[in-house]
Design a binder for these strands. Structure first.
Length: 422
RNA sequence: GGAGAAAUGGCAGAGUGGUCGAACGCACUGGUCUUGAAAACCAGCGUACCGCAAGGUACCGGGGGUUCGAAUCCCUCUUUCUCCGCCA
């Protein structure tokens, strides 16, 4: 959520930035400010009452010490009223805080300076396109290739669990494992510390990265233990830094980690969910960075080129989109999407999304660093997929298919131990 | 899963109802001294909110309660440790 002090400091600017999402947030912003005013006034009033009541308590203590029991008991009467007053003010303060939070939760991140205005994906800017569309002599979609070479069994997953939980086997499983290991090694080479996070998180973590309270429907929830299956490694990895004050000199902090991701994807159906396009369980390697506020947009560009280099090394044709305000995720200030060409489906598949959240996540996480003035300041957070496995698998299978088999990208061969799938 | 013990500032560790937001030590920061460093000495050193400031308020694992007053008493949850059981 946005920092209320940022909103107060530049109300007009924030409203203008938010307007790039194709919606007017003036009312919500005004509501937030007026609730914050009420909050401040109530707090002030309550502090005064408490201050007086503390003073009286100390006097009573003194009187007891001097054995002036009568006088002490007489003073007790005066505190009753104050107590009632302060607890009423306390209730009111809590109510205002809750209301303010509720309003702030409804305001998305303010898009960054470079983000174009727009309402939907049609307003996104194509930054660049890299590579040539492959010239295929056969054009089987990946689900047919999976069946032909016995790589991924979707039916079997349905039997064991349900739709969207495929079974990878043989060279399919090995290719997937090769990709994961290669991604992690590339991450390490680029200075990211490797993390193996928990796959279930508690409520506090869900709130920290913004999945809760609004989007709980998208996560699998284990009610017995009140734990949530992670929808992305971003959740546990970013929550490492919840309630943490890092050293300024340690920034940027770079983490990467592989994890399965679990998404209920309620409401998805049709051709979008065919094959590997949309799953309930899939694997992803995530990169996360904590940045100094002055450096975060530089790091966003770094992350974008890092991801692009992975795609280049794999030999995939891709394009980079700068998302317009309306298509930028709720928590993000600026997002690049990387899409890979799927040669048989003849469509672009989103394989990565790298975002700068500025202080939006850090605010909820209470992730700060001590600046040179000794003041605590909110850090910026960034993250991106590097990369999500299923659609990479799909495009490798489709784009590198030949009548004699699927040619494995060279960088993966040492990892999987075969050059061709036939 | 059963029985018991514990949770205090970056660390360590006092404090069992009233000048305790919290001793002492270590670490850290600034200063004196020194050619420089170490040592020694002096000073500072948690977080958040309100306030122009002075100052005020809250926080001793989380939440609730008792009391004029809670780090301290009570309830509850969580976590850690020890023993038993089970187990990759």
């Amino acid at each position: 959520m946005l920092l209320i002090n940022d909103i107060r400091a530049d109300k007009g600017g924030i409203i203008a930035r938010l307007a790039k999402r194709g919606k007017d947030f003036t009312d919500l912003v005004n509501q937030a400010i007026s609730l914050d005013d009420k909050r401040k006034n109530t707090q002030s009033e309550m502090d005064d009452v408490l201050s007086e009541s503390n003073k009286i308590s100390k006097e009573i203590g003194k009187l007891f010490a001097e054995k002036k029991i009568e006088e002490a008991n007489a003073m007790k009467a005066r505190t009753g009223e104050l107590k009632e007053k302060s607890s009423a003010l306390g209730e009111q303060l809590k109510a205002y805080e809750a209301e303010l939070l509720d309003v702030l939760y409804q305001i998305p991140n303010a898009p960054g300076a470079a983000v174009p205005a727009g309402r939907s994906e049609t307003d996104n800017t194509i930054i660049l396109e890299h590579g040539e569309k492959p010239n295929l002599t056969q054009k089987l979609p990946h689900w047919e290739l999976c069946e032909k070479y016995n790589l991924i069994d979707f039916e079997l997953g349905v039997k064991i669990t349900g739709a969207g939980f495929p079974v990878y086997r043989g060279k399919g499983a090995r290719l997937q494992r090769a990709l994961i290991n290669w991604f992690l090694d590339k991450g390490r080479d680029a200075g990211f510390e490797e993390i193996q996070p928990p796959l279930f998180v508690n409520e506090a973590s869900g709130i920290g990265t913004g999945q809760l309270p609004d989007k709980e429907g998208q996560m699998y929830h284990m009610e017995v233990d009140n734990l949530y299956a992670i929808p992305t490694g971003e959740v546990p990895i970013t929550n490492i830094y919840r309630d943490v004050i890092v050293k300024e000199a340690d920034l940027p902090i770079k983490n990467c980690g592989h994890s399965p991701c679990f998404r209920r994807e309620a409401g998805s159906y049709g051709k979008d969910v065919r094959g590997l396009n949309r799953l309930h369980q899939f694997d992803k390697v995530e990169i996360v960075q904590l940045s100094h506020p002055t450096k975060s947009y530089e790091l966003l560009e770094d992350m974008s080129s890092y991801v692009q280099n992975l795609l280049k090394d794999l030999g995939l044709q891709y394009r980079v989109l700068l998302l317009c305000g309306g298509d930028t995720g709720f928590a993000s200030a600026m997002t690049y999407d990387m899409e890979v060409w799927s040669a048989a489906q003849e469509m672009w598949l989103e394989v990565s999304s790298v975002s700068n959240f500025e202080t939006f996540q850090a605010n909820r996480l209470k992730l700060r660093f001590k600046n040179s003035n000794g003041k605590n300041e909110y850090a910026h957070t960034l993250n991106g997929s590097a990369l999500a496995l299923p659609r990479i698998m799909a495009s490798i299978l489709e784009n590198f298919q030949t009548p004699k088999g699927i040619i494995v990208p060279e960088v993966l061969r040492p990892y999987c131990g075969f050059n061709v799938i036939d």
